[in-house]
C-alpha cells in the first residue's frame, strides 16, 4: 500500500439500523436502552443524535462501533452485519481516552501500527498529515498531560481519522470543553468533514451543536430509548453556531424536546 492510497479518502459507508432493541439487566432490574430503533445513515452524511441523557445514544453508537451487540435487530455497515469493531468505523469518546504512556504522535500512530502494508516512515507521515489537519503539527512530541482539553480532543480526532475509516462515530466529544474552544472545534470539524468526507454520527445533548453540525438531527427520548422526531437542516456550510437561521432550527428542536420531556413529567406526576 502506498502513502497516496493510504491518504486518499476512504469511501464513506452507509449505516443501517433495523429494529434494534438493546436491554441491560442489572441487579436493579432491566433497562431498555433502545426500543425497536431503526435508522439509515447515507454515505457521507453528517447525522446528529440528540436527546436527554439516558436515552440510549451511547448504546447505539457502541453497537455501530461493534463494541456492543443488540439484544435483537440488525446493525449493518456498508450492507454487511457489524461483527465487532473495525477500523472502518472509528470512535471518538467523550473523555479523550488518549493513552498517557505515549506522546501525541504515538497516540495517533497506535491504530496505524496495527495496519499492515505500511512502513514505519509512512505511518509517521500519515500521523503528521492528520496532526496538521487538526492544527497540532507542532505538538507531535508533546505529552498528553501537557495539552489543554481542546487540544486533547483534537489529538483524539486525529487518532480516530488516522486509520482512514469510512465512518466516524463521535460520542459527545465536546461536552467537557468550554464554549469558546467548542466554537473553534465546530469550525474545524466542518472543515475536516469537507476535506475527508466521512459518514459521521455525532452524539450530543446540545441542540444548537446538533443543528450546527448535522445534515439531519434525530431526537431521542428515554425510557425506553426511541427516536422521537427527525429534522433536516439544509443550511449552507460552514455554519456559524451563532447565526439566526441556525437559532430557528434549534428552537424548533428544543420545542419538540420540551414537548416530550413535559409529557413524561406529567405522566410521572399522575
Amino acid at each position: 500500500m502506498s502513502l497516496e492510497s493510504e491518504l486518499a479518502n476512504a469511501r464513506a459507508e452507509r449505516i443501517e439500523i433495523i429494529g434494534v432493541t438493546k436491554s441491560f439487566t442489572t441487579d436493579r432490574g432491566t433497562v431498555v436502552a433502545l426500543d425497536n430503533v431503526s435508522l439509515k445513515v447515507a454515505e457521507g452524511e453528517f447525522l446528529c443524535l440528540v436527546g436527554p441523557s439516558g436515552c440510549g445514544k451511547s448504546t447505539l453508537l457502541n453497537i455501530i462501533a461493534g463494541l456492543d451487540e443488540p439484544t435483537s435487530g440488525r446493525a449493518l455497515a456498508a450492507g454487511q452485519p457489524i461483527q465487532g469493531p473495525g477500523r472502518d468505523r472509528m470512535v471518538m469518546f467523550q473523555e479523550h481516552a488518549l493513552f498517557p504512556w505515549l506522546d501525541v504522535t504515538g497516540n495517533v500512530m497506535f491504530g496505524l501500527r496495527l495496519k499492515t502494508g505500511l512502513s514505519n516512515k509512512e505511518r509517521r507521515e500519515v500521523a503528521e498529515y492528520y496532526l496538521q489537519l487538526v492544527g497540532l503539527e507542532k505538538f507531535g512530541r508533546a505529552n498528553i498531560h501537557e495539552l489543554s482539553g481542546g487540544m486533547k480532543q483534537r489529538v483524539a480526532l486525529a487518532r480516530a481519522l488516522a486509520p482512514n475509516p469510512s465512518v466516524l462515530l463521535m460520542d459527545e466529544p465536546f461536552a467537557a470543553l468550554d464554549a469558546l474552544t467548542r466554537e473553534q472545534l465546530y469550525g474545524d470539524i466542518q472543515r475536516i468533514w469537507e476535506a475527508r468526507r466521512k459518514t459521521i454520527i455525532f452524539v450530543t445533548h446540545n441542540v444548537r451543536e446538533a443543528a450546527c453540525l448535522g445534515d439531519r438531527v434525530l431526537l431521542f427520548s428515554p425510557n425506553p430509548g426511541r427516536i422521537q422526531a427527525e429534522f433536516h437542516i439544509s443550511l449552507p456550510r460552514p455554519r456559524d453556531i451563532n447565526s439566526v437561521e441556525l437559532a430557528r432550527h434549534s428552537t424548533e428542536i428544543t420545542a419538540a424536546l420540551k414537548g416530550f420531556t413535559s409529557t413524561a413529567g406529567r405522566q410521572a406526576s399522575e
Binding site: M90, V91, F93, F99
Partner: peptide, 13 residues
C-alpha cells in the same frame, strides 16, 4: 480506565 480497552479495540488491538 476501561475506556482504554474500548479505544484500543476500535483501533484493531
Amino acid at each position: 480506565p476501561p475506556i482504554y480497552l474500548r479505544a484500543a479495540r476500535t483501533m484493531g488491538s
